[in-house]
Amino acid sequence: MAIVGPSGSGKSSLLRLLNRLDEPTSGTVFVEGTDFRNLEPRELRRKLGMVTQRPYLFPGTVAENLQFGPAQRGETLAGEAIEELLSQVGLKDYGGRNVANLSGGEAQRVSVARTLANSPLVLLLDEPTSALDEAAKLEVESSIQKVVHDHGLTCVMVTHDLAQASRLAEKALLLEAGRIVRAGLIGEVLHA
């Protein structure tokens, strides 16, 4: 699902509310039928994995970044699992590379793989390609399509790029001034 709308309409705020990085001033969010206030914030954030506009990779290697999420729960991500995740985002054999040497598109794909390492139920993408050039944008889009398909994930993506929304999403929400003004299939929302 794509969330579209003009700047300041509340697209990123909605994503932050879903991930509970911000608290709603009224109302709540239900995750699998449970009020998210009754869930541990850390468990909620694991279930609703988020990829931000900038990758914010932690200093170290690509593999260390992928191990970050599981390590927070005292789990270790096996080498094969790291390789599998990196293959899914088109970065096979990148595990030992230092993140300082990655291009913008590669870093964003590592960010997607890092979020997937937490085995989320839903993937939240906050303008994941807005800081990338055209070629890198298409690479990241392709990786997103593949992982969403392979993992059978629900994906909610904020984008200001309507062409990208058409390419990637089946459904869309149009926001204006913090309110949903249209919702439905992507074609209906974008071309109404």
Binding site: N19, Y56, Q72
Partner: peptide
């Protein structure tokens, strides 16, 4: 802020 919220979004304990 970006790095801290990324760590939170990945399930890190706030204090960590």
């Amino acid at each position: 802020v970006g790095e801290i919220e990324t760590a939170l979004a990945l399930g890190a304990e706030a204090r960590n």
